[in-house]
Design a protein around this nucleic acid. Sequence first.
DNA 1: GCGTCCAGGTCTACC
DNA 2: GGTAGACCTGGACGC
Length: 298
Amino acid sequence: MRISIRPPQNFNFKRTVLSHGWCALMPFEFDQQTWTLDRVLETNSSVPVTVRIRNKKRAIEIEPDRTVGARVTAAIERDVRHMLRLDDDLASFYDAMSAEPEFSWIPQQGAGRLLRSPTVFEDLVKMMCTTNCSWALTETMTKNLVKNLGRAARDGRKAFPTPAAMAGVSEKFYRDEVRSGYRAPYLKELADRVASGSLEVETWLASELPTTELKKQMKEVKGIGDYAAENLLRLVGRYDGLALDSWTRGKFAAVRNRGRAASDKKIGRYYSRFSSWRGLAFWCDLTRDWLEESCGAE
DNA sequence: GCGTCCAGGTCTACC
DNA sequence: GGTAGACCTGGACGC
């Protein structure tokens, strides 16, 4: 069985999948040799479905691990559209980038769609696991969450755990099994609040709050500070913040400041001309070298 | 082998 | 509102 989705014009599958580190975090599994992205999806079915996502000429091709009915097919399509940001309107971003010679590669290559998880909850948990640690530890914590608490698809691979599954284990479990250290109480509290319905993080996707207010709401989650909130804002489609961290500060120094450290204010000033798109312009600028220049829109 | 440092930060207490 | 210190983990590095 194969499901085909027509992407928007100049959609770039490679730039989207490799837009940041998410494709390396379970239950995403990415093979750069074959450019296939595997992912286990909950899809509200009795058993989760593993899908293989590929880029074909003028289409995104999705191959589920089994034949599924219309309801699950619709859920898979919805999740893939969401993850690959196929419905994001980047027209005004591309207009702004086209006006700047050093940024015109972005619309030319169709960059700017940042891979995200099927749910805000998953992105929020993962973001918490990126703070104050090496990338290797982020991968370990995510893997432990999925392997211990995720539901298995027929091929044995696991989905990302639901809020209820995460709420069902103790703080000790997060320390001992997930290896999340001091983040354990934060993860437990977040899962409890989302599972009980007292915190509705999925509403952030369509929130009408001004960005500053939405950021404030995100920071009310323990373990989420400026860096994590601004990264989450990008994943819900708001690009005002730069989400500065040690990696981006170092990369800005290398790419835009002759190898010398720059203050956060200086970094902010550099991208301020891009107004509400500055966070996306910043991220694309710093990750331009992640793919070859020949990797144009496809 | 052992000790130290620090990585895609955040929280809290204190001033 | 600004800042210092504490916080888990695990890999890298120097000795």
